[in-house]
Amino acid sequence: METYTAMRHFADSWGLLVMTLFFAGVVLFTLRPGSRKSADDAARIPLRED
Score class of each variant (00 low, 15 high):
residue 35 S to F: 05
residue 27 V to K: 00
residue 8 R to G: 06
residue 19 M to Q: 04
residue 49 E to L: 14
residue 42 A to R: 10
residue 11 A to L: 15
residue 43 A to C: 11
residue 2 E to V: 02
residue 4 Y to D: 07
residue 5 T to E: 08
residue 2 E to N: 02
residue 34 G to I: 06
residue 41 D to N: 04
residue 14 W to I: 13
residue 7 M to T: 04
residue 18 V to K: 07
residue 4 Y to L: 12
residue 39 A to M: 12
residue 15 G to N: 09
residue 32 R to D: 05
residue 37 K to M: 11
residue 1 M to T: 04
residue 27 V to S: 01
residue 28 L to N: 01
residue 38 S to R: 10
residue 25 G to Q: 01
residue 29 F to S: 11
residue 14 W to T: 14
residue 26 V to I: 12
residue 47 L to M: 08
residue 3 T to R: 07
residue 28 L to M: 13
residue 33 P to I: 05
residue 32 R to G: 09
residue 14 W to F: 08
residue 37 K to T: 05
residue 1 M to P: 01
residue 37 K to Q: 15
residue 32 R to Y: 06
residue 44 R to A: 15
residue 43 A to P: 03
residue 44 R to S: 15
residue 11 A to H: 08
residue 40 D to S: 07
residue 2 E to W: 02
residue 27 V to A: 02
residue 14 W to M: 10
residue 2 E to K: 00
residue 29 F to L: 09
residue 18 V to G: 06
residue 33 P to Y: 04
residue 16 L to K: 13
residue 19 M to A: 06
residue 19 M to K: 06
residue 17 L to Q: 13
residue 8 R to P: 00
residue 45 I to D: 07
residue 2 E to Q: 08
residue 9 H to Y: 07
residue 41 D to F: 09
residue 37 K to F: 07
residue 24 A to W: 07
residue 35 S to Q: 06
residue 34 G to T: 07
residue 49 E to S: 05
residue 24 A to M: 09
residue 40 D to W: 11
residue 20 T to R: 00
residue 47 L to S: 14
residue 46 P to Y: 08
residue 9 H to M: 14
residue 10 F to P: 00
residue 20 T to E: 04
residue 21 L to Y: 00
residue 8 R to A: 09
residue 49 E to D: 14
residue 39 A to C: 02
residue 13 S to H: 14
residue 27 V to L: 03
residue 48 R to E: 09
residue 29 F to M: 08
residue 48 R to K: 13
residue 24 A to H: 01
residue 8 R to N: 07
residue 38 S to Q: 13
residue 45 I to C: 00
residue 31 L to T: 11
residue 28 L to K: 08
residue 16 L to W: 02
residue 36 R to L: 15
residue 42 A to P: 00
residue 49 E to P: 00
residue 4 Y to I: 05
residue 17 L to S: 14
residue 45 I to Q: 10
residue 42 A to H: 06
residue 4 Y to E: 06
residue 29 F to N: 06
residue 44 R to D: 15
residue 33 P to H: 02
residue 23 F to N: 00
residue 30 T to Q: 10
residue 48 R to D: 06
residue 44 R to W: 12
residue 19 M to H: 03
residue 16 L to M: 10
residue 20 T to C: 03
residue 49 E to C: 04
residue 40 D to Q: 14
residue 32 R to A: 15
residue 32 R to H: 05
residue 10 F to E: 12
residue 7 M to W: 13
residue 12 D to C: 12
residue 10 F to S: 00
residue 49 E to K: 15
residue 32 R to E: 10
residue 17 L to M: 12
residue 41 D to S: 09
residue 33 P to W: 01
residue 14 W to R: 12
residue 31 L to S: 13
residue 19 M to N: 07
residue 20 T to N: 00
residue 41 D to V: 04
residue 20 T to G: 01
residue 34 G to R: 01
residue 36 R to F: 11
residue 38 S to E: 12
residue 13 S to F: 14
residue 24 A to F: 04
residue 23 F to W: 02
residue 26 V to T: 06
residue 27 V to N: 06
residue 35 S to I: 01
residue 40 D to T: 08
residue 25 G to I: 04
residue 4 Y to M: 08
residue 18 V to P: 02
residue 11 A to W: 08
residue 46 P to S: 12
residue 37 K to H: 09
residue 26 V to R: 02
residue 47 L to W: 11
residue 1 M to A: 11
residue 7 M to C: 09
residue 11 A to G: 09
residue 24 A to D: 00
residue 36 R to K: 15
residue 13 S to C: 08
residue 25 G to M: 05
residue 46 P to Q: 10
residue 12 D to I: 04
residue 39 A to I: 11
residue 19 M to V: 03
residue 36 R to Q: 14
residue 6 A to P: 01
